[in-house]
Structures are given as C-alpha cells and as structure tokens.
Design a protein around this nucleic acid. Structure first.
Lengths: 204, 204
DNA sequence: ACGGTGTTGCACAGCACTGTGCAAGTCGGG
DNA sequence: CCCGACTTGCACAGTGCTGTGCAACACCGT
C-alpha cells in the first residue's frame, strides 16, 4: 500500500516542510536572514535548501502563498452567514488571530518592503473583504470613526500586529491575547467597550 | 562679522544638513538604502558622505538622536500642566503627530530591526512616560481596555503608524490626519467616541 | 546487494556593499 | 591671488551573500 513513495521521498518531504517551518521562524526573527542561517537552523546544509527551492524568492513566495491561503480560509469560515458587522468582525478577528500570529512576518513584509513584490497584491482580496465589512458597519452606524474604511483597515491590521508584539515581549498572556485584541479592535472601530466585551466573550 | 566661518565651512554645513534630510527620506523609502543611494539622492558622491559621517551607523544614529529629541520636546511641551489623562493624551497625540509623521521610519526601525541596537533604549524614556499616562487613565477609569498599559502603548504607536501609512497611500487628507488619528487612539483607549471628538476638536 | 533519490561538502563566479587612501580639483575669504 | 577647507573620482581590500557545479556519500525499498 502507498507504493508510490519512490525511495527516500518521504524523508525529503519532511525536510521540505521543516525548512519551511524553520524559515518562517527565522525570517520572523530577522527579515534579512540568509539562506545559510535558515539552512543551519533547519539542521541542513545550504545546498540542500537550494535543492528544494530554486531561490530565496521562491522560498519566501511559498511561505506567502501558504499564509494567504490560511488567512483567507480562516476568515471566510468565520464570517459565513453572519450579517451583523460587529459580530462578523469579532468572529473574523478571533479566527484570524492564531493564523495572523503565526504569519505576522508576512503581514509585516506585505506592508513594508519591496522584497517580494506581489505580496501586497496577493493579500489585496483579503483586505478588500475587510474594507467592505468596515464600510458596511460604518454605513449602518454600528462602527464609528473619523477614518474612512480603507484607513480603518490599516489601523485594524496594525493593532493586531501591536498586540502580537506585546505577547512577544511578555506584556500579555498568549491565551488572553486573541480576545483582548478583538475587543480592542472593536473598541477602536467605535463599538462601545461593554458591547465589545460582551460580543467577544459570548463566543467559544 | 561672523568671522568664524573658516572658509567653505558654511557650504559644508549645508551639505551635511542636506545629506541628513535626504537620508531620512531615502531610508524611509527603503530601510536598506545604501550609502551610494543616499549620496546620489543628496547630489553628492559617496566619499563625501563618509567625510561627514564615519559610518552608516553613525549617520543613522544622528538621525535617531534628532528624532527622539524632537519627539521628547513636542511631548513634554504639549503635556505641561495638564492633569486629565484623556486631555493629556489628546494634546500629546496632536503635538506628536507632525513629528512622528516625519520620523516614522525611525519609529518603525525602533520596533523592528536590530539594525542600530540602542534605538529602543533611546526611545524608552518617551515610551515610559506614555505608559505612565495610560496607566493613570486606566486607574482613574478614564481609559477602558482589556490590555495592560504597556501593551496599550504598543497599540497607540502602531495606530499612529497605520494612519501615517493611510495618508501616504492617499486614503486620507493630510490636514485631517492628525485629528483623526487622535480621535481614533482615544476611542481605542476606551474613551467614548463623542467625548473623544469633543476633546480633540476643542483644541487649536 | 543494487539503484534511485536525496544529502553533503567543497569550490567557484558574481555581485553589492562598506570603509579607506590618495591625488586632483573647486570655491570662497583674506 | 593664494590658502585652506571641502569635494570629487578613482582604486582598493575586505566581507557576506546568492546561485551553481560536481563528486562522494547515506538511506530505503526491492
């Protein structure tokens, strides 16, 4: 059974996965980490990494693809069939949190560098969804802000990033972080604090 | 008169200032900009830059020193003699805005890279002040947040950064940005939206 | 025991950048 | 007009990284 594993293929796949994992961690620590750093951290030689990915660009690109897929999936799943903007945003935030935490590097890269051009583009549809949601909330008066929806979207993203950093620096317990982030974002969007707390705590 | 200008010294000083200005802009565009890029952008040869600053580190360091001085000054000036935390925060934000906008690169670097270690340290006292202010507001119940004061400070900083980016991308008018940012931050800190708006608009 | 697949360890060319040295300019003030 | 401070242009050594080539090896299933 499963006779398709031609030789040491499974070990190679494991290596590939480990390289990706470690690359994520390493790039998170230092966005300019070299291929050698990544390779060594993965317990492998630089040459081997090039055996799996033709270039540094390709490696990061693979990482990004995985990240946007995971984010889009979590977001879509969380918001399915929820009509109230505040509740939809709350669910989206709670669902996005663990994924965003894991991939925060890519989010940061997406806003900043020209390293891999096209990250912005690949994240764009996700951002568009968020903007539409915010716009709807503003129109309905559920959200209140002097900022237009697109700018508010930036703020939301950066707030998630800020909370992630806080966790990283030990200022906040990881278990609480997701809920705290969600409440904070809702509050920033103009949802009264008690209502925001109630909304978020009323979810698993 | 002013006989102390020994030769072409004044021209040299102008060059030095221009290099610093241009370096700020260039590093803002690309945090990894090379000395050559900076020099050319300043209409000067690389060698000349090394005539004014012994190293890349030294150049950036000078930039950082200027930034923290300007920020600290604006902050202290704005908060002098204001006791209400909400009002103090509002004044601080409005005063900090133009400076933070100009130096946003350094703020970003401060949170992120290890490029120039010590940026964090130099910004620390400023951050400490902000944390104390937030803590006082939380204690008095003027601010409401599930986040502890230090984490909230991160959020405040990142929100300013987000609004800056929004302006940069043309999503928001530059004149409105400062006030909008202030209102947004206050709202995120749990100050009810109407009160936040009133506070901010009641200032020059 | 064998063959394929993957891994290792080297060596290499190429590139971009930093920081320095030095000789030849250029410009303004005395 | 000339002196001194500043600038330029070039050359150079050093460093660290990317991507490739190649021969030797290890491992697994057959």
């Amino acid at each position: 059974m499963t006779a398709m594993t031609t030789g040491s293929t499974s070990r190679a796949d494991a290596n590939r996965r480990r390289i990706l994992d470690v690359a994520l961690a390493e790039l998170l620590r230092d966005p300019d980490a070299s291929m050698d750093q990544i390779a060594r951290a993965a317990g492998v030689v630089r040459r081997t990494v090039y055996g799996h990915f033709p270039s540094r660009e390709a490696l990061i690109s693979t990482l990004v693809d995985g990240a946007v897929a995971a984010l889009a999936d979590a977001d879509a799943r969380a918001r399915a069939g929820v009509s109230d903007p505040a509740e939809a945003l709350a669910r989206s935030l709670l669902a996005l949190w663990p994924v965003a935490d894991r991939y925060r590097l890519l989010i940061a890269l997406a806003q900043r560098t020209v390293t891999v051009q096209g990250i912005r583009e690949r994240l764009a549809p996700l951002r568009e969804d968020k903007i539409r949601l915010l716009q709807r909330g503003l129109d309905e008066g559920v959200f209140v802000s002097p900022l237009p929806a697109p700018a508010l979207a930036y703020v939301v993203e950066q707030m998630l990033f800020a909370v992630t950093e806080a966790v990283n620096d030990g200022l906040l317990a990881a278990e609480e972080a997701g809920r705290s982030a969600a409440v904070s974002v809702l509050t920033a969007a103009g949802v009264p604090a008690p209502r925001a707390t109630e909304l978020v705590t009323g979810m698993s």
